[in-house]
């Protein structure tokens, strides 16, 4: 009985996602169509890929508020490379590199200046957004090569290309967190940073790597966003950081660090994606959608805390 309810609670995010899926299939005839599901995947892919990086950061006991700004920066840098004569792959690479650099900058400031990640990334949130607007003159970058559209909107057979990218990134991140030194040290740093330092782990180096990976994935997400819109918007991604953090915590990540998984995060991001898509299909007032998603965040974390309390005493 006790065991049964424990298992139920452990898989609650997954069960909720499955339930949501079934309910929407029954409630709306348009939900379970290839077009709609592909659109859900395209809509959530950007948040999902960013959330993979954020999972590492949050498990390490950190936070990255600057991802929305980095998304726009990468998009603008990447698209400007393309319109100034660079090839599509070069532009994508430039966007990813731009994101990675900002991730490194966040990581260096957190680990070398020993500043709280909340403060550092609150600062870079503004700095990166401002620089993006300066570089682009505040105007969207347009006139992108048609080939760039494939990244966000293309399909391989019936499968949206972004789904393949997402699955690929998720598998690599999942494996990295579960089975590599990087992943192990990420959990150790988040669980008890002092103990990690005392164990002789080069904590500063790993923190830089963690924020850099988050920046890199955000850079990739930024290029996908530009591909879907076929413009480089300097105002893209405003407040995405909140959705990304919400995906991680709905999936069981703890802002105190040391807890969180890639699978949990994916489920968290899809729960939010389905809530939003379902509300659209069922004609729920978009103002109410925000209320629903906010309530779900609190409910999910409350249930998770209740589970932890029960199993720790």
């Amino acid at each position: 009985m006790r065991l049964g309810s424990g298992v139920l609670q452990k898989f609650l995010p997954f069960i909720s996602l499955a339930l949501l899926f079934v309910i929407l299939s029954i409630a709306s005839p348009y939900f379970l169509t290839t077009t709609n599901l592909a659109s859900v995947i395209r809509q959530t892919a950007v948040i999902n890929i960013m959330a993979l990086g954020m999972t590492l950061v949050i498990v390490s006991g950190g936070i990255d508020l600057s991802v929305g700004s980095i998304l726009a920066f990468s998009g603008v840098i990447g698209t400007m490379t393309m319109v100034n004569g660079g090839s599509v792959p070069l532009g994508i690479a430039a966007g990813i590199a731009g994101g990675t650099l900002w991730g490194c900058a966040n990581g260096l400031m957190v680990s070398k200046l020993r500043l709280p990640p909340f403060i550092v990334t609150l600062g870079t949130l503004g700095i990166v957004r401002g620089l993006t607007l300066v570089i682009s003159g505040g105007l969207p970058v347009v006139g992108l090569p048609k080939a760039h559209g494939f990244l966000g909107e293309g399909t391989v057979g019936p499968v949206p290309f972004v789904l393949l990218i997402l699955v690929g990134c998720a598998i690599v991140t999942h494996f990295a967190m579960r089975s590599t030194k990087l992943g192990r040290y990420t959990y150790a740093i988040g669980s008890n940073e002092a103990a990690a330092v005392y164990a002789g782990i080069p904590v500063a180096r790993y923190k830089v790597a963690i924020y850099a990976i988050c920046g890199m994935l955000t850079g990739l997400a930024g290029m996908i966003e530009t591909s879907r819109l076929m413009t480089g918007q300097p105002t893209a991604g405003v407040s995405y950081e909140l959705q990304v953090i919400a995906a991680v915590v709905i999936g069981g990540g703890s802002l105190a660090g040391g807890e969180g998984t890639v699978i949990g995060t994916l489920i968290g991001a899809f729960i939010m994606g389905l809530l939003s898509n379902g509300s659209d299909l069922l004609g729920v007032n978009p103002y109410w959608q925000q209320v629903i998603i906010g309530a779900v965040i609190i409910l999910a974390v409350a249930l998770d805390e209740a589970r932890k309390r029960r199993f720790s005493t």
């Binding site: 030194k181 192990r184 959990y187 150790a188 008890n192 103990a195 164990a199 782990i201 040391g258």
Partner: peptide, 26 residues
Amino acid sequence: GLAVRLPVRTNITLANLDAVCAGSVV
């Protein structure tokens, strides 16, 4: 001394993880 929320196993190998790794993989 300990990463208290992590398993005993992880705590034991934490200071010498390389010895149970092949490359970077545990």
